[in-house]
Design a protein around this nucleic acid. Structure first.
Lengths: 180, 180
DNA sequence: CGACTGACTTAGGGCAACGCAAGTCAGGTA
DNA sequence: TACCTGACTTGCGTTGCCCTAAGTCAGTCG
């Protein structure tokens, strides 16, 4: 009903509340988000193949051929991407040897790579909600209590928050570059 | 301290604990994640420009020229991407009219688009932690209590969880396709 | 009525991501 | 020694993202 042809289906309705800009950030015309950590993060996992390889690593894949096949990408890209991810420190390349086998490399998530878990989980959750007709093929559960797990926003005081409850602030960093 | 600059640094430390695969998912060789909601989500926000436009929408940008300039992309891509995002129902194109101005379109996040907030926040948080030398240029705070906000994994029973505390399960969907 | 602004479109070209097909190379097995 | 497997590499063509430069077009202001 908003208008437009193509029928965007569902969605639309009232605009959801978003974070409020504060301080020097309030006049949105006065700054550009070019030092944005989000942009940097996107540069690291910019390609679809990188994303899928990280996903596979979360699912426990460690070997070259398995990565290529399970992520559904060709071997050349797989090799290139694995090399990049190792270079960026998201994956570590280790040698391992099964008895009666020669030594082969295993790719494992580093702490840095594993730190992407909430982001991937959030993206998966969004896909489950908005793109999968049946809620999605896999879910995460808390092992101890069996309850489903969700990504949420929570402040250091422990309050559950929604985007509309947030302020966007520029942290005080008196000692350093004037930011920009 | 795990850190690193360019050097992948020797050991890479111990591999962080990851979710455990359960049930039919346990033998990893037996399934492929091709219905994955994550892959679907990536297809929707696959390009850097789409990501940046969504980010700008979260920062309150609504006008065409502002999107192009603030996201740092050219007008042709901006036009193409906005059209796609509207078509996918992440943004809504509304007409608005300031007094003494002609009617112009405003692009606003729909509920579906706004649902990406946790994912973007998680990615930004990861970038702050691992890619920005100073912790990143902007932060979210809970307006009521002023505390910083973080993305976290929490189960329906309210427990804070880590990736290693999770089981990956295939939800019981007796009535439908055999999955995969 | 002519200039101007804002929201685009069109044309043309570069580069990066990707797939396919076909090697290469080292270690282990027969 | 010959063969095989696993982990890659090389070559080549395609597609898609993106940029610059140059329009177009509608409504407003002077």
């Amino acid at each position: 009903m908003t208008e437009d042809g193509a029928a965007p289906a569902g969605a639309a309705a009232a605009a959801p509340p978003m974070p409020r800009l504060t301080g020097v950030l309030a006049p949105r015309e006065r700054w550009q988000a070019n030092a944005c950590s989000l942009a940097k993060a996107i540069d690291v996992v910019s390609t679809r193949s990188a994303f899928l390889l990280i996903r596979e690593a979360f699912y426990g894949t460690t070997r070259f051929d398995d990565f290529a096949e399970r992520a559904g990408i060709s071997e050349p890209v797989c090799a290139a991407r694995l090399r990049e991810l190792v270079g960026e420190g998201l994956l570590a390349r280790e040698q391992y040897q099964e008895p009666g086998q020669r030594a082969r490399p295993a790719y494992r998530l580093t702490e840095k790579g594993a730190g992407l878990f909430p982001a991937l989980a959030a993206l998966m959750q969004w896909g489950d909600r908005w793109l999968a007709e049946d809620g999605g093929p896999v879910k995460f559960r808390h092992r101890e209590c069996g309850e489903p797990v969700e990504v949420e926003l929570r402040c250091a005081a422990g309050h559950h928050t929604e985007p509309g409850d947030l302020d966007l602030v520029r942290p005080d960093r008196s000692g350093s570059r004037p930011a920009r």
